[in-house]
Design a protein around this nucleic acid. Sequence first.
DNA 1: CTGAAAGCGCTTACAG
DNA 2: CTGAAAGCGCTTACAG
Lengths: 339, 339
Amino acid sequence: MTRVTIKDVARIAGVSPSAVSRVFTDGASASEATREKVLAAARDLGYRPSLLARGLVGTRTNLVTLVMGRMNDPFDALFLDELAEALAARGTRLMLASAGRDAPGDSGLLQALDYKSDAVIVAAGTMSPEHAGLCVRAGLPVILSGRVLDAPGVDSVLADNVGGGRQAADLLIRTGCRRLAYLGRGGATFSDRERYEGFSATAANAGRAVATTAVTDRDHNAVFQAATDLLAGPAPPDGLFASTDSMAVAAVEAARAVGLSVPGDIAIVGFNNVPMAARRSYRLTTIDYPISAVVSGIMDLLDSRLADPDRPSEIRRIPTRLVVRETTREKAPAQERLP
Amino acid sequence: MTRVTIKDVARIAGVSPSAVSRVFTDGASASEATREKVLAAARDLGYRPSLLARGLVGTRTNLVTLVMGRMNDPFDALFLDELAEALAARGTRLMLASAGRDAPGDSGLLQALDYKSDAVIVAAGTMSPEHAGLCVRAGLPVILSGRVLDAPGVDSVLADNVGGGRQAADLLIRTGCRRLAYLGRGGATFSDRERYEGFSATAANAGRAVATTAVTDRDHNAVFQAATDLLAGPAPPDGLFASTDSMAVAAVEAARAVGLSVPGDIAIVGFNNVPMAARRSYRLTTIDYPISAVVSGIMDLLDSRLADPDRPSEIRRIPTRLVVRETTREKAPAQERLP
DNA sequence: CTGAAAGCGCTTACAG
DNA sequence: CTGAAAGCGCTTACAG
């Protein structure tokens, strides 16, 4: 119940609290004799510096706040896992600011201030430039993951969604698909908009139109239903790109349900490359989201921003990689190659 | 850069810092006039009480630390999501203590002390009774999720794994399976051991032996391979229970790969009831893990323990629910019913 | 109801 | 290298 403090250690070691503090501070000046006495006393007493007190007085807390929404896609856990790992390796603590129902991004941002986080990583919700600016002005670095915001001092790192959409379109077109479709969130998220942009622009260049289907509900039954509606029509698409693997997989199931062969009748491409996409039941062709590189980028920007709070904001776009599996064709059907 | 403190608010409002503190403390005594002046000043200044300072001096921090391992199963994200939501609704902050590679549970436990968490929830790693006792003695309540530990003051809440294993065995036996198998982690986790225990004991009661296959690698290819080996033999099992849905799904894929029909040749039951289990491609029969009830239980125990630190430890086992889908048969084949 | 004082556990200049 | 002092931003008794 009664905590071991720096004073206790000082008393047992026969030195001043300042000396103890120095021993526990990297690059401090303490004689070897002092260091030994302090360390021994600390060990005997089971002393751990209070991060509360340290954070209150010091300039750095080694605490980062992550603003996340509901984790309703397998991708979310992959990202969080990798980020937590990277932060832990760096000795940084992670506080989770769950998106409240009202203003996910914004309220989480403010929460980061309460514990004097070194930075806030925003991976969910919409960010108002005002709140972001408020944080930056309060000395709290804001790093956006998966979206960009044009505000001074706000850094971003994200997958090259536009490029990913282009890779999907290129593959589909190259392998002879003529009636393209996009299954997404109807522009509800930043990633969804960018992926659609890359896909549709590339399709347009090749003279192909894109039918779009928007799904608001992330529940897989709803997505399955929407995909079924899309595919059950008279002239169903023969090439479909989905905003996420979860949706793509629902589309694969919908195709099978309506008797369309994949990739014979319809080729399907997802995005993220979650483990499920690789399973035998799907073998989904997809665009790999470079999670590790994105997380490394976040760590880099964190270091840079901490080292120089006034540096201009930076946006890092990490290239995606096409992973061809079995829901797309190898090449265009024979007749496609004729003029 | 320069933080708005309680003094700033006090000055602007023309009152003492103590008065400001009271206004921001529930159930404090402040006149309506004071309250209004303070709130107005706080709003104008954008004041937010420092949780660092508050935690340092106060008795409660409203902070809880969660010790988790790598999130390599879809279930982990479901649990974390629900827990984060429940904590947020309660106004409690969540700190993530990622399992380091060395001593997952233990080091996370200690981390909880550094920020004076109100409690630590342990959902991963093995817990030594010594460290748990150390925390309890230090006044840090320990709540175990998904495992139990016989230590005074340590509470637990978990799914009734044994009962779940029994439900699986009952179903398999009732529907005529004769050669039972268990696909699990070889006793590597608490849950795995309990699920196997319930399954094998029930099977033994019915006079059935259980072939077991242990998988150490959580990668789905490794599980698929192990399941394939199990099913490709001369007398493959006709009823299989897997420790998790992820494994069960790999088993379904293995069965299909070796030409066994599911549930015709082999019935398969999973555990957890993750969204993937419900997908068209699997329609997996499984044991539902009562996440909401487990999380509610954790919240309950948290409240109780905080209200009375000295109460005896409590273990809550939440019943599981059998979810019958299409990887198991409706009833025993005809010949099974003859003597 | 209200304010002055003390203190939470630490670190940071400042002398020595 | 080392210790005494001041202070981080708050809350908690204590008087009034």
